[in-house]
C-alpha cells in the first residue's frame, strides 16, 4: 500500500492533477522527515494534542475537584505531579489545561494568518495609496508592545479566554501582513504574474490564486515560530489575571496562582512551566524545519 503510494507520488510522469499535487506534498514530507529536530518537534506537538484531546480518559481526577485535606502535596503515587493550593490534582489540570492553551493558539492562528495574508497581499499588489493606508495601519499596531496592547484590549472587554484570544489576535497580525507584503512585492512584477494578467484575470483572482499561495510557506513558518510567543502571551495574560479565569486550568493561570508558594512548594509551578517550555520549543523546531523545506527561494 505504502510502497504503491510512494511509487505513484514520486513518479516523474504524473498523469493527473491529483498525482502531481500529492507528489509535491510527499517530497516536502520526505525532506521534513530527514530533519531530526523538526521530527522531534512534530512528535511533541502531536503528543500534546493527543493528550489534551484524550484528557477526560487519561486524567486520574476531575481537574476542579478540591481536596483541602491534601493541599500542596508533593508528587506521589496518588498524585503523580502533586496537588495545588486547593488540593486539585496537577496532572489532571495540566492535561485539561492543554485543551485551553492549545485551543487559544489554534484560534489565534486561524484568525491571524488569513487577516495578515489578506492585508499584506492587497497592500503589496495594489501599491500606491492602498499600500500606504494599510501599512500605516499595520505600523500603528506594531508600535505598541504586544502584551501591553493585549492587556488594554482585554481590560476594555472583560477578562476571559475569548477576550484573550481576540486580544492576542488583534496584536499578532501585523508581522504577518508585513511578511505577506514583502513576498508579494518580490513576485508582483514577475513575468509569470504578468502572464496571468494577460489572461484577463481580475486583480482579486491574481492575488487569491497566484500571489497568495506563494506567500503561504513563509507565513506557515512564521506561524510555527509565533506559536511559542502566542502561548507565552496567553500565559502572561492568564498570569496577570486577564486571561482564563479560575478555576479553569489554563497553564499560564496555573503558574500565576502557584507563584505565591514558588519557593516552598516549587513543584506546583514547575509542571506547567515545563509544559509551556516543551510546546514552545517543539513549535520552534518544527518551524525551523518547515522553513528549510518550504522556502521557495531555495529551489
Amino acid at each position: 500500500m505504502l510502497a504503491d503510494f510512494r511509487a505513484w507520488a514520486l513518479d516523474d510522469l504524473a498523469t493527473s492533477r491529483r498525482q502531481a499535487a500529492w507528489g509535491r506534498r510527499y517530497r516536502i514530507w520526505l525532506a521534513l522527515k530527514a530533519n531530526p529536530l523538526a521530527m522531534i518537534g512534530l512528535f511533541i506537538i502531536v503528543l500534546c494534542v493527543l493528550l489534551a484531546f484524550l484528557a477526560p480518559l487519561l486524567a486520574p481526577y476531575d481537574p476542579a475537584i478540591q481536596d483541602l485535606e491534601n493541599r500542596l502535596a508533593r508528587p506521589s503515587a496518588d498524585h503523580l505531579l502533586g496537588t495545588d493550593e486547593l488540593g486539585r490534582d496537577i496532572l489532571s489540570r495540566l492535561l485539561y489545561g492543554g485543551r485551553i492553551t492549545l485551543g487559544i493558539v489554534v484560534a489565534v492562528v486561524v484568525m491571524v494568518a488569513p487577516v495578515g495574508l489578506a492585508v499584506g497581499t492587497i497592500a503589496g499588489y495594489f501599491g500606491g495609496w492602498v499600500d500606504k493606508t494599510l501599512m500605516r495601519l499595520t505600523d500603528v499596531f506594531l508600535a505598541f508592545p504586544r502584551l501591553i496592547l493585549a492587556l488594554a484590549f482585554v481590560a476594555a472587554l472583560n477578562p476571559g479566554v475569548q477576550s484573550a484570544i481576540l486580544a492576542i489576535a488583534l496584536t499578532a497580525w501585523p508581522p504577518y501582513a508585513r511578511i505577506a507584503r514583502a513576498e508579494t512585492l518580490t513576485v508582483r512584477n514577475s513575468e509569470f504574474i504578468e502572464a496571468v494578467a494577460m489572461t484577463g484575470a481580475s486583480p482579486w483572482r491574481i492575488i487569491l490564486r497566484h500571489v497568495a499561495p506563494l506567500c503561504v510557506p513563509s507565513l506557515v513558518v512564521r506561524v510555527t515560530l509565533d506559536m511559542a510567543s502566542i502561548i507565552i502571551t496567553a500565559a502572561s495574560l492568564g498570569f496577570l489575571g486577564m486571561g482564563a479565569q479560575p478555576p479553569s486550568p489554563e497553564w499560564g493561570a496555573m503558574i500565576a496562582t502557584a507563584k505565591r508558594f514558588i519557593l516552598d512548594q516549587w513543584w506546583v509551578a514547575l509542571s506547567p512551566c515545563i509544559a509551556i517550555l516543551l510546546v514552545s520549543l517543539a513549535f520552534n523546531f518544527l518551524g525551523d524545519g518547515l522553513r528549510d523545506v518550504l522556502d521557495p527561494k531555495q529551489d
Binding site: 492533477r17 502531481a20 509569470f192 502572464a195 496571468v196 497566484h210 529551489d299
Partner: peptide
C-alpha cells in the same frame, strides 16, 4: 521567470 513556479 514566466511560468509560475508552484503550478503544473
Amino acid at each position: 521567470g514566466s511560468l509560475h513556479p508552484r503550478q503544473t
